[in-house]
Design a protein around this nucleic acid. Sequence first.
DNA 1: CCGACAGGATCATTATTTGAACCGATAGTT
DNA 2: AACTATCGGTTCAAATAATGATCCTGTCGG
Lengths: 257, 257
Amino acid sequence: MSTVEKAISLLNFFTEDEPEWGLSDLARQARFDKATTRRLLVALANSGLVEQHAVTRRYQLGAGLLRLARVRESHFPLLQVAVPVLREVAAATDETVHLSEFGARGLVTLHVEESSKANRVSVATGQVLPLHATASGIAFLAFSPAPLVKSYLRKPPATFTRHTLVQPARLIEAIETAAERGYSQGEQGFEDGVVSVAAPILGLDGYALGSIAIAMPLSRRTKATTDRHIQAVRSASDKISARLFGEQPSPRQSRVA
Amino acid sequence: MSTVEKAISLLNFFTEDEPEWGLSDLARQARFDKATTRRLLVALANSGLVEQHAVTRRYQLGAGLLRLARVRESHFPLLQVAVPVLREVAAATDETVHLSEFGARGLVTLHVEESSKANRVSVATGQVLPLHATASGIAFLAFSPAPLVKSYLRKPPATFTRHTLVQPARLIEAIETAAERGYSQGEQGFEDGVVSVAAPILGLDGYALGSIAIAMPLSRRTKATTDRHIQAVRSASDKISARLFGEQPSPRQSRVA
DNA sequence: CCGACAGGATCATTATTTGAACCGATAGTT
DNA sequence: AACTATCGGTTCAAATAATGATCCTGTCGG
């Protein structure tokens, strides 16, 4: 881990739930030396990525992030474009809808619109979704370049529930079905009692850059709702791609077999 | 400059106007060695702060920034709170309104609402405002801890126009007037032909954390508009503080003399 | 008054970063 | 077809920056 990566890894300890850290606390949590942690924080503070409260001496994320995030969004307005669409879908289905993007850390949840029902599926922003165990992941893989899929399949997949697909043959089957149909279905692969449908969000090159999914408790599933969700998730994904690029990218399914 | 600071400084080359960079270009611009630049970019990419386009090999800001910016905003929603207020002020005055926050780099412009008039003042987000030469800066200094003000006054101030206040005595006078009145007025101190009024945005500790300003071309100034702008900027600043903290912080003027 | 823990500073040791040179690929130019 | 100029990316000895045990100081609660 390079020094830079260490410094940035500190940023990831700041969350909605714990937006402020004291030096010693953070050092313990990150398992860095206190002096090291402090030097990294000072560097981050000099760059405006964190700020230190003058009185409490605690650290929090800095204003510099706002500018950077804004630049990113103005160049590639995924959130701006997708969030309203997610809202629509959430309103229409009243189930939890989430958007994820594939990046260095994996398939990361970027935004969640939760159902208003008491019995609902909760997903945390920032959470990394295992590709083989979630509908989002399968939808993503189904429209990814073959090398990426193959290299992912080489690693032994983690088991989360009794339903997690772990045999490569079954996984490949799921990916191919999703590639044919343009959407995927999750069957309690990540969490017991949760089912979901997902569609890829395609980039201009025709490969998936992320996915959108609707998740619901198994207890509420019926043929009718599933069908509606499939419709909703597919048209939402199309809408997002179209609004991002001004045109509909032509899909490039991965042929794994 | 630490390695971490170098890496983060690379991020600042990505702007609305130049959101993508090739390796060699960026290395030249940042005056780092190509190998160094690449290692830093790889570290940033591993952390999700930049992304590399698989085909063009060019780099752009990454999705990780969105999550971090969101955490920051949910903890301290300055933009969420202030932008609507700025919009109101801009609509009411039809002049350029801008918000700045004090951080490591200085007083940084966070958001701008521009006037709809053809002849208007333009301010760039991300721009650092010299404290002694702008209304925003004076308003900020007038409500800053005395040590900060004193250490700033020690440095010889830069001259931007014939009107820039550079004599310490005059500067102190301006700061004290602003502290008394609760707002400051800029008289072409930074740019010829531009006048502005600004008010501090107070933190819970009573010290300024930034400021809000209305800027207009000198040619449009009248006693009446100035008075309206002063009213507007003061009530906007109060509103922002109140919405941020749920109460009105009691101001702490700096006593410099 | 004391102990515990906080944030911060120091500096010899150590490990990471650095950059000139190099590679292979691509795109004009002659 | 050969030449040239770039590009992104890699290598490795030399140089520099990061590290962490230790110390300092202030604050809090008992």
